[in-house]
């Protein structure tokens, strides 16, 4: 499956990663080599094999629906780039 620059552009957009034109062509080269290596997978017959998501086949544990955490907003906002009145600040989204 050959990788085109449009694929890199799409992935960069989906991943919210700014990529310049120069960088894009570099990524096309690098990612193509990685995907060529990955394409060895296609030669393996996996008919009837179930995908494995967790090495121990564990399922999610459940717990009682009780409040266990306390509010630590101030602590967690101390490492934020910009906050005001307990809210995270971002550029205006709605005019």
């Amino acid at each position: 499956m050959a990788l085109e620059e449009s694929h890199v552009r799409r992935a960069a957009h989906l991943a919210r990663l700014a990529v310049s034109d120069d960088q894009a062509s570099g990524f096309v080269d690098d990612l193509s080599r990685i995907l060529d290596m990955v394409d060895q997978l296609q030669s393996l017959d996996t008919e009837g094999v179930a995908p494995l998501a967790h090495p121990l086949d564990a399922t999610q544990r459940l717990r009682a629906d009780e409040v266990t955490e306390t509010n630590q907003r101030d602590t967690f906002q101390r490492c934020a780039p910009a906050v005001e009145n307990g809210l995270y600040l971002v550029p205006r989204v709605v005019e």
Partner: peptide, 11 residues
């Protein structure tokens, strides 16, 4: 890190 984010997002 960017390479792996892009590969992961693409695949």
């Amino acid at each position: 890190v960017k390479r792996r984010i892009l590969i992961g997002t693409h695949t």
